[in-house]
Each structure stands twice: as C-alpha cells, then as structure tokens.
C-alpha cells in the first residue's frame, strides 16, 4: 500500500496541499517562487506534486518537473530551496499523522526529483 492510500487518499491530499502551500507562502526563503495571481493553478500543481511523491495515481513525469522548473532555475532556484520544500513536506505529513518511516520514504521520492527540478 502506498503512503497516499495509508494517509487516506484524495481527501487527505486536499488537506495536505492547503497546509503545504500555506507553509511555502509563509516561508520567506521560498515564498517568492510561489507568489502568483492564479492561486488555484498553483495549488493544482502542488497537488500533482504531493500525489506523486506519496505514490498516488498521477501523470506527473520527470520531464514535466524539468520543464516546469526551468524558468525558476533561471531565477536562482537551487539546492537550498529544494531542501526547504522537503522540510515543509515532512512537517505537513507529520501534521497529518504520518509516521517517521512514511515521511522518510516520501522524502526519498521527493529527493529523487532534485536533478530534474534543478535542470541537472
């Protein structure tokens, strides 16, 4: 069973994405990358990301991660920002009641996207 299913599937993701997005906007280390007029579209992207790293049903491929973040790399996106995302991903899952083992496995999946996100 995936962490996605263990945490409660779609309903849990809807809660998780709001919590996660709020953490991003409130953290000045990464907030600029998440500021947008179209918050619903930003939320949809984050939902796709969370669904992917939790092992839920998704169509999010590494190539999409690469092209989606290419312009952010130009704006200075680097390893430290990916670290912040993984940090908030972990605390979001902790708030939702995930175990440390589940969090570690999700963080490992998120980490595996690092090279694509940073266009390496």
């Amino acid at each position: 069973m995936s962490v996605y299913e263990e945490l409660g599937g779609t309903a849990a993701i809807e809660t998780a994405v709001d919590v996660f997005y709020r953490k991003m906007l409130l953290d000045e280390r990464v907030a600029d990358f998440f500021e947008t007029v179209d918050m619903d579209r930003q939320r949809a992207k984050q939902k796709a990301f969370l669904t992917m790293v939790l092992g839920g049903p998704n169509n999010y491929a590494g190539k999409d991660m690469r092209s989606a973040h290419a312009n952010l790399v130009g704006r200075g996106l680097n390893d430290s920002h990916v670290d912040v995302v993984i940090e908030h991903l972990a605390s979001t899952l902790r708030e939702l009641g995930a175990s440390e083992a589940q969090i570690a496995s999700v963080a490992a999946v998120a980490n595996s996207a690092r090279a694509d996100v940073l266009s390496r």
Partner: peptide, 16 residues
C-alpha cells in the same frame, strides 16, 4: 480580491 484570497487562505481557509 486577489489580496483577500491570499489573506483568507493564510488565515486557514481551504482554497477549495
């Protein structure tokens, strides 16, 4: 409206 949306979201409203 966009400013209010951001503020109520940060104040705990679900974007949905």
């Amino acid at each position: 409206v966009q400013l209010l949306k951001r503020k109520v979201f940060l104040a705990g409203a679900s974007l949905q």
